[in-house]
């Protein structure tokens, strides 16, 4: 299945909407698109995964890498729109305690 990534940047927020399935085949496209965006200083990045029907460990690895990069550059990182299954994936791996998932951050477009 194809993966589509939409990037919407405002003065205060960088919103990235992902649709499709994230696996070993589509994860490189995801990494190539959003990793450079995480290099900006103080970026306020929100990833919307409400259109993602499947994600495996490869996708999780991409988001962890981006999260680390955003934090290293003094930014904020958040993932929202997680389905129950994806939210459980973050909980099982203990990442829900580290990465802000499924909560609102200041300036986000609802």
């Amino acid at each position: 299945m194809n993966l589509s990534i939409d990037v919407n940047e405002t003065d205060i927020l960088l919103e990235i909407t992902v649709n499709g399935e994230i696996d070993a085949y589509t994860a490189p496209k995801l990494r190539d698109t959003i990793f450079p965006l995480s290099e900006k200083n103080g970026v306020n990045m929100v990833i919307n995964l409400s259109g993602v029907s499947y994600m495996d460990s490869t996708g999780l690895g991409v988001f962890v890498g981006v999260f680390k990069n955003v934090k290293a550059n003094g930014g904020q990182f958040k993932i929202n729109g997680l389905s129950g299954r994806l939210e459980r994936l973050f909980e099982i791996t203990g990442l829900a305690d580290i990465i802000d998932v499924n909560s609102q951050i200041e300036g986000e477009v609802k």
Partner: peptide, 10 residues
């Protein structure tokens, strides 16, 4: 249950 995050991550 999970006690820590995956290895090789942080």
């Amino acid at each position: 249950k999970t006690t820590n995050v995956p290895i090789g991550m942080f």
